[in-house]
Design a protein around this nucleic acid. Structure first.
Lengths: 212, 212
DNA sequence: CTATGTGAATTTATTCACAGCA
DNA sequence: TGCTGTGAATAAATTCACATAG
């Protein structure tokens, strides 16, 4: 294996591999071939081998890759580790769904604080997390929580983002379908669910939405 | 303008442009320059001009692009139109959040049917949509609903997917963090919220999660 | 004989630089 | 002069084909 920069597209696929490998590990498998992994995640085997070759060379020819080793490497590259604390702002339907979302745990994330501006919600416990007043967002700095999920209505999103940045948050997962601006030192990932959906009709032949 | 296939990456950016253009249109602007659009969506102006050049050539030099015309073209390419019916399966927190999600409307999608297996929920109305028994998924064919959102727990996802396929659904937006398999004639987009989050530590210098 | 690993070829996408039009 | 539009240059990612190890 020669050193080379890992392409961005490979980085994008690593979480996919990671999840699939955990799945295989749970089944009790010890080794996995590039082709069986390919089948599960819907890619070609050579793509997967190429991806792994950027940081690996730890497969065994004629056998496959050791799952535990792959998981270890991906964890190292993506800096996945347990106990990565996240704050949630907005405990509405979407926020509650986030608190219940089982997917975060896989990558070591844990929502340890929740905030809302609704007095009826403040003080209540949702999924073992006590809902705090959104006015207390400043406490995140002291509590060393540097990642946050915004799940508030559009109008409130920018204001919340500003407060988060002031509180030392460095990464934001934004679920509101609107633009927020932050200093360039803070990384924002905006997830607009509808945007992925919007691409669907283009790709489905004859259109999913034909009138029949 | 010469004819050329529109690159996939351009297609991926079109919904982003679309949303931003609607935003500018609401502000009452009539023209937009590639650079102001670029600033809002966080891309370079030449990228945007290049993207538009694949299907356009309708900008005015020295002035910019006519917003209405751009919107029209993007609508045509992505096949965006109003009244695109969607069914929702699973009216838990995530499902309820989907029903309330304002982003779908932008692209002309509308959730017109909701299903759950919880007798307590069946018959109730959530956001003007009556919750039906999941056993009645078969009715989608008759009702000409060909797109569905799966927002059920992992264990139930595959079963629901099978039923949807049987009911003639052609596109599925899957929110459960697990693999579902469908015939190749059906397009599935799986959104694993945690997967985007998982890439964040890699990109943030020094790591978002440093111990201080 | 199976499945990895990787240079080389190919395809695809981004960036540049500037011509051309209002 | 300002901003579009686009070939050409560059960069990046995918695909191939096959040598190589177990």
């Amino acid at each position: 294996m020669r050193f080379r920069r890992i392409p961005d597209e490979t980085i994008r696929r690593l979480p996919v591999y990671f999840r699939a490998l955990l799945f295989f590990a749970e089944q009790g498998s010890r080794y996995i071939s590039s082709s069986s992994l390919a089948e599960l995640v819907g890619l070609n085997s050579w793509q997967i081998r190429k991806d792994f070759s950027y940081f690996g060379g730890f497969g065994t020819r004629g056998v496959g890759y050791e799952i535990a080793e792959l998981l270890k490497q991906i964890r190292k590259i993506l800096k996945i580790r347990t106990g990565q604390k996240i704050a949630l702002v907005g405990v509405g339907n979407l926020g509650s769904a986030m608190l219940a979302y089982p997917g975060f745990q896989i990558y070591g994330f844990e929502i340890v604080a929740a905030f809302d501006n609704n007095p009826k919600k403040i003080g209540k416990k949702v999924k073992n997390v006590k809902v705090e007043d959104v006015a207390k967002l400043g406490s995140l700095k002291r509590r060393r929580i540097r990642l946050a999920i915004i799940a508030v209505p559009c109008e409130a999103a920018q204001n919340v983002a500003d407060k988060l940045v002031n509180a030392g948050v460095r990464g934001i997962l934004n679920f509101s379908p609107c633009y927020i601006t932050v200093p360039s030192t803070v990384k924002v990932i905006t997830i607009d669910i509808a945007m992925d959906l919007a691409r669907l009709p283009y790709y489905v032949p004859g259109s999913v939405f034909a009138e029949w």
